[in-house]
């Protein structure tokens, strides 16, 4: 597995404010969502194989106080065939699954893009794979963590 980080200091998302709706942005771009919706209704790929071949894989997003977590179901994908990249404020997860051998060898590529929450420390992103599920940990900036202030009242 390789983790690549690109920093484009000038193009960081200055315009974006921390929106309570970032979960929706995280969920990928609008076109992807429409595609997914259509696929879920029409099920174009049913019966083709054991896997979704539409280039998408299920993603879950969670958060706790210190981190945002992205979990992706990628069964049967070798760690070395998974690439997690941070490009211009987006988290890109690409994976290639090799199935079959010899003449039946087949390569299927998957890619999903998730908008990173603004307060992510992109240099401390961590990923691990277990049982075909990839977990990416995105630590939040210190300042974004909720702080407790005690104000004394005289």
């Amino acid at each position: 597995m390789k983790i690549t980080r690109y920093t484009y200091p000038l193009t960081q998302n200055f315009g974006r404010s921390l929106s309570p709706f970032f979960a929706h942005r995280l969920a990928g771009d609008f076109e992807n969502q429409i595609e997914q919706l259509l696929d879920s209704v029409f099920d174009f790929n049913s019966g083709i194989g054991p896997f979704n071949t539409d280039g998408l894989f299920p993603l879950d997003i969670y958060e706790d106080e210190g981190n945002t977590y992205v979990r992706a179901e990628l069964p049967g994908v070798d760690r070395k065939d998974i690439a997690v990249e941070v490009v211009d404020g987006n988290l890109e997860i690409s994976a290639t699954r090799n199935t079959g051998s010899g003449d039946n060898a087949e390569k299927i590529s998957f890619k999903r893009v998730v908008s990173l929450p603004e307060n992510t420390q992109t240099d401390k992103i961590n990923a691990s794979a277990e049982n075909g599920v990839l977990t990416i940990t995105l630590p939040k900036e210190e300042a974004a963590k909720p702080r407790k202030f005690t104000v004394s009242i005289n």
């Binding site: 299920p58 993603l59 997003i61 969670y62 958060e63 979990r71 179901e73 049982n131």
Partner: peptide, 16 residues
């Protein structure tokens, strides 16, 4: 499924 969401994790988006 072997993984359970830890209690202090908030779900933002689910597909699985």
């Amino acid at each position: 499924r072997s993984w359970k969401r830890p209690e202090d994790w908030t779900t933002l988006h689910r597909e699985s």
